[in-house]
Amino acid sequence: MSTIYELTGAGDRYFDGLVDKFSRSLYQAPRGELRLAMLDYLLPQMLRLDQQPVLDIGGGLGQQAAWFAERGHSVTMAEPSIDMLDYARQWHREAKGLPHEAIRYVNAPLQALIDEAPGPWPLITCHAVLEWLGDPRAAIAVLASLLAPGGQLSLMVFNRDALRFSNAVKGNLEKALNDRLEGMGKRQRLTPISPVTHAQIETWSAENRLAITEVAGIRVFQDYLRHPPTSDDERDTLLALERQYCRHDPHWRLGRYLLYTLTKPEAA
């Protein structure tokens, strides 16, 4: 019998009890490997990186926190799931060999960080978090309040338009037509409860005086392939294709994830 998971009072989905599912489905599978490879490729292009302190929100299993710590940043990793946080802490020490002082761990959701990690922060990463919140629009306001004037927010969201297109490609025509795309967040399936559109990110950013300075699509082609790559050469070719077109219109618009750099104006 499948385990039933409950949303929080705010309508958010946490991932206690799902460390193995995340590790296996998202990071030991081709789609997770490609996502990390594309972040490794894109973040140095899309961000000004000078070893500034980083707040990594919803850090999950700790991959992004480790990426920044290995590049000399002082990292604070916030994660509401204690299971995820404990896994990340152990992985950072044992597998990555990071010193204890490299990363500070905060067991808190995004909404609590105004008190738990107020900053202001010169650099915030919030990757694959908004789509698991009951109110992603309100989350943008919280992120803006945490960001220092002149600071950068690296925001990655699950793309609702890509989810619709993927359902149509798979033959789920009624689902795509009726726009019934959200997951319920009750079981182990990892269909987000609040996939968002580029238009929504544009609107919510403007509401909070955040400028979109960079945008890219992640997994622009992979999720639509009829025959996934089966050899290293084919995987290398797919990665090259993703890199070549991830920032080109119209291709980036159908990335399974959309990656943004948002900036806050300098103080007047």
Results as ranks from 00 to 15, higher is better:
S2P: 15
G9A: 07
R13A: 00
D16S: 10
Y27L: 03
Y27T: 01
R35L: 11
P44M: 07
P44L: 06
Q45K: 08
M46A: 02
L47K: 10
L47V: 15
L49C: 11
P53L: 07
L55W: 05
G59V: 05
Q64N: 03
A66S: 04
F68L: 04
G72P: 07
S74W: 05
M77W: 04
M77E: 02
A78Y: 13
S81L: 10
D86Y: 08
A88H: 06
W91N: 04
W91S: 06
R93K: 11
G97C: 01
H100G: 05
R104S: 06
Y105I: 06
E116L: 01
G119I: 08
P122E: 14
V129K: 12
V129Q: 10
D135Q: 15
P136C: 06
R137S: 15
A138V: 09
L146S: 10
P149F: 01
Q152D: 08
Q152K: 02
S154K: 02
R160N: 11
D161H: 04
A162W: 08
S166A: 12
A168W: 05
G171V: 10
E174H: 11
K175L: 15
K175D: 13
L177D: 15
L181K: 03
G185D: 01
R187G: 09
R189D: 13
P192G: 08
I193V: 04
S194W: 07
V196M: 14
V196E: 12
Q200D: 06
S205H: 03
A206P: 07
V215P: 06
I218A: 07
I218M: 10
I218C: 09
V220H: 08
R226I: 02
H227I: 14
P228V: 05
T230M: 12
D236M: 11
E242P: 02
E242Y: 08
Y245F: 08
Y245Q: 04
P250H: 11
H251M: 11
W252T: 09
W252F: 11
W252I: 13
G255S: 09
G255K: 02
Y257R: 08
L258K: 01
Y260P: 04
T261F: 03
T261R: 12
L262P: 04
T263N: 02
A268Q: 10
